[in-house]
Write a protein that binds this DNA or RNA. Structure first.
Length: 204
DNA sequence: AACGAAGTCAACCGCTAATTT
DNA sequence: GAAATTAGCGGTTGACTTCGT
């Protein structure tokens, strides 16, 4: 099958939105030959696209069992919690939400949740400021002569307790792992996550 | 109705890690 | 072991839509 090439003999590839025809070609090819060697997929499927673009299209839109839109409250809550735990590790977060893709989670976070998260954090900071800071946060004393600072007294246990409600991050372990409103089937990933062999991450 | 601002989301880019040659 | 290739990730962009004036 001939492919378009420019003067330096490079393949010319399409950019921008995918057409229904392109989607069909890609899906049909992968159904027969499988999803690997994306550069080859692009050529053999007769698509004027780069392999990367084909991969993205398949993973985010054409792959079976993809859910699109309508993120439920439960999913949203899970995203918020996982983001607190993992940060911008979108693929890891998406891995805990069946049928959701990293791109969708990332977009949803940027357009819906980042503001919510910021608001919540500000509220947390505000309430902490009103209820006075924990003793250990006040107990870092600065030696005015040397400029050194040292923690004055708190035990490891006290520090751990403070870490669990860190005003800078709003990271609250008790809140993060409060699943009292979850049904048991949705908590399977938590059990796996807490297993010491890290099988949660697919390590073997 | 017209326009600009803000929001949304599909797709691309650059980079790193993993795998193959 | 080195180089080349491929896969995967997160950040960013830009086209399109919706909303407010």
């Amino acid at each position: 099958m001939a492919t378009k090439k420019d003067q330096s003999n490079r393949r010319i590839v399409n950019r921008g939105s995918w057409t229904a025809e392109e989607d069909q070609k890609l899906a049909q090819y992968i159904e027969v030959h499988g999803a690997k060697k994306w550069k080859l997929v692009a050529i053999k499927a007769g698509l004027d696209r780069c392999g990367k673009s084909c991969r993205l299209r398949w993973l985010n839109y054409l792959r079976p069992n993809i859910k699109r839109g309508n993120i439920s409250d439960q999913e949203e809550d899970l995203i918020l919690r996982l983001h607190k735990l993992l940060g911008n590790r979108w693929s890891l977060i998406a891995g805990r939400l069946p049928g959701r893709t990293d791109n969708e989670i990332k977009n949803y976070w940027n357009s819906h949740l980042s503001k919510k998260s910021n608001q919540k954090q500000k509220q947390t900071e505000h309430s902490i400021a009103q209820n006075s800071q924990p003793e250990s946060w006040n107990s870092v004393k600065v030696n005015e002569e040397s400029g050194d600072s040292k923690l004055d007294g708190p035990s490891n246990l006290e520090l751990m307790s403070d870490f669990q409600r860190n005003p800078e991050t709003g990271f609250n372990l008790e809140e993060l792992f409060d699943f009292s409103n979850e049904d048991s089937s949705s908590l399977e990933w938590v059990r796996k996550f807490l297993q010491p062999d890290h099988s949660f991450y697919g390590f073997s």
